[in-house]
Design a protein around this nucleic acid. Structure first.
Lengths: 189, 189
DNA sequence: TCGAAGTGCCTAATATAATTAGGCAAAAGA
DNA sequence: TCTTTTGCCTAATTATATTAGGCACTTCGA
């Protein structure tokens, strides 16, 4: 029999693609094994189990997302950077729904620390350099931005914005205007 | 044999409590059956299946959340109302992690329409009356607020805020200050 | 080039979960 | 009391996760 050529990376990648196709809940050991034309048990030499497989997809997605955002951010500053960051973030979530869902996983502390999660915060801070914010306001602003982006993307997906004629794109643009405005005019304590 | 006295409501409530205890993924027909000391198959007279059970938990949670927020909002206006709304929202998410997760479910259109999801938007609009926003800015503001609250609560839960000494509570308070500021100073087109 | 070691995928077995079909007994109504 | 309905059960099927142990292919040293 020809070997399937399984690797932890290849398995993870297949799982990530599967997640984007059928949703993150659909990421099962058996489903991935089916893709490779291999028995379920064969995957256990490469991954510890479903939880491990899913966590790997999460780590992959976090890294990809950080890459996309970093690329979009290159050479921009101020509102330009804010918009680029936000659009790259939202675009990734739309193109890779399953992967994006994976990023919501509760990762083990060590795994999370080793992941690209830290890069997000660093990039957001870099982006904020165009605004005049000292600590701890900067940290608070990072959290507000991240929350707004994350929340928007999720609500848009679950259809929370469908009961009004206003398009999600239009509100998104204005939301970025609003966030830019607060960053330029951060309330004093 | 004494009957367990199963009811769709009782089953849903048990599932909701279970969700808060072990997480929404842990809501299984078998687990709920175990709670009632009943066979799995017995639950199928009351619910259509796991998906149906989970959707019911989602609808319950949406209603409870709307109630909590409505109560907190009563008699308040302006920033006072904003803070009350936000705190009630976040408190519910913290006290009922499983139920809150359930609210993220993709509900069938008809179910979603019949649920309390609409009440949220209505309440948010009511809260915004203290600010001077015309359409479509009002809709955009509702979306920003909802996104920020939802995103904040989720990121806080997955531990996204743990890499900095700044507490989640402190940033939350400042985030509300910032949101109040934008609402008072919504950027012109 | 041959043989030892390691690796890759398989078979087999077990446990948990979801779901359907059909049955018996308890509760409710005439 | 008799009948109907309803509630929970048994039994069977299917899918998934996971572990243990085996055989064959690959690779690498001698």
């Amino acid at each position: 029999m020809a070997r399937a050529g399984l690797t932890t990376e290849r398995v993870t990648l297949a799982a990530a693609d599967l997640a984007d196709e059928v949703g993150f809940e659909g990421v099962a050991v058996s489903a991935v094994a089916r893709i490779f034309g291999v028995k379920d048990a064969s995957l256990y030499s490469h991954i510890k189990g479903v939880q491990d497989l899913r966590a790997r997809v999460a780590v992959l997605a976090l890294a990809e997302l950080a890459d996309q955002v970093a690329a979009a951010l290159a050479g921009r500053a101020g509102k330009d950077a804010l918009v680029a960051f936000a659009n790259a973030y939202r675009a990734y979530a739309k193109e890779h729904p399953g992967r994006y869902t994976a990023t919501q996983m509760q990762l083990e502390p060590e795994v999370a620390a080793a992941s690209a999660a830290g890069r997000h915060a660093a990039m957001t801070r870099a982006m904020l350099r165009g605004y005049d914010l000292a600590e701890p306001d900067q940290t608070d602003a990072v959290r507000l931005l991240h929350s707004a982006f994350h929340g928007y993307v999720l609500l848009e997906r679950t259809g929370g914005f469908q009961h009004t004629p206003r398009t999600a794109d239009a509100s998104w643009a204005r939301t970025l205007d609003a966030l830019d405005a607060v960053l330029n005019n951060w309330p004093p304590v």
